[in-house]
Design a protein around this nucleic acid. Structure first.
Lengths: 118, 118
DNA sequence: TCTTAAATTCAACGATCATTGAAATTTTGA
DNA sequence: TCAAAATTTCAATGATCGTTGAATTTAAGA
């Protein structure tokens, strides 16, 4: 019913974006989303990373920082990166973030097939 | 007397770096350091941004995240970016951070001549 | 309509954060 | 030896953060 809030990209400031990335779980989510960009990821695809309620918290942080978009479909939500909009606001940043996350072996990883599960 | 602690770059994780940048004052400091890379910036060059004691806190955050280096000389400390080392650990990241900070008009700026003052 | 599934919301907690102002430290120079 | 300058340390503050578990919402399917 109530629409999901997505901030205008123009109003996003850099410190907020970096704040959203200042957590290993959220960085791992961003990395997983980047690796799975052909299809869309369900929230429930990430239960390895944290509990459902904690995931909701982390997803909200990413969304309110302008990094992700959520689309409701039935009782599920599909999460994706706001690639193009982010590129317009901060060119090159997202790619750099993903490359950086990829270089950090301490981040929780994720078997890619997890994203395709029913 | 006691040497200034600088973490090994290999042990730095991405979330810590982003956490250090999740604050407008610290982002402004990084941007100012990038704009003044020919010479070195004294801590006291930044009194427009915050009080001395608060600056010490922010400088420690940046230093412990591997972003800056501090060199003592007399009663002063000179701060600089750990450009090359950071480039080795996370290639392209620092440039991207600086470009991002430059695109954020809400960040406190800084007349460049401030850095040269005696 | 009842049930199940998926995700959010809420209240609570201890931990960390940004900020302040006063006190301490360190080094230079008179 | 004293005093001034630059910076740090410390204790205290309210705010935000990450986390938990229980309760709630929302929509789909039997």
């Amino acid at each position: 019913m109530k629409p999901i809030f997505h901030p205008d990209m123009e109003g996003i400031d850099a410190a907020t974006v970096f704040g959203a990335l200042a957590d290993p779980t959220r960085l791992a989510i961003v990395l997983a989303l980047a690796d799975a960009e052909e299809f869309e990821a369900r929230c429930g695809s990430f239960t390895d990373f944290a509990s459902p309620s904690l995931l909701a918290y982390h997803f909200a942080k990413l969304r309110e920082a302008g990094i992700t978009r959520a689309r409701a479909e039935g009782t599920s939500r599909f999460i994706s990166l706001r690639r193009d909009e982010l590129e317009g606001r901060f060119p090159g940043l997202l790619d750099s973030i993903i490359a950086t996350a990829r270089r950090d072996p301490s981040l929780p990883r994720f078997s890619e097939d997890k994203l395709l599960a029913p």
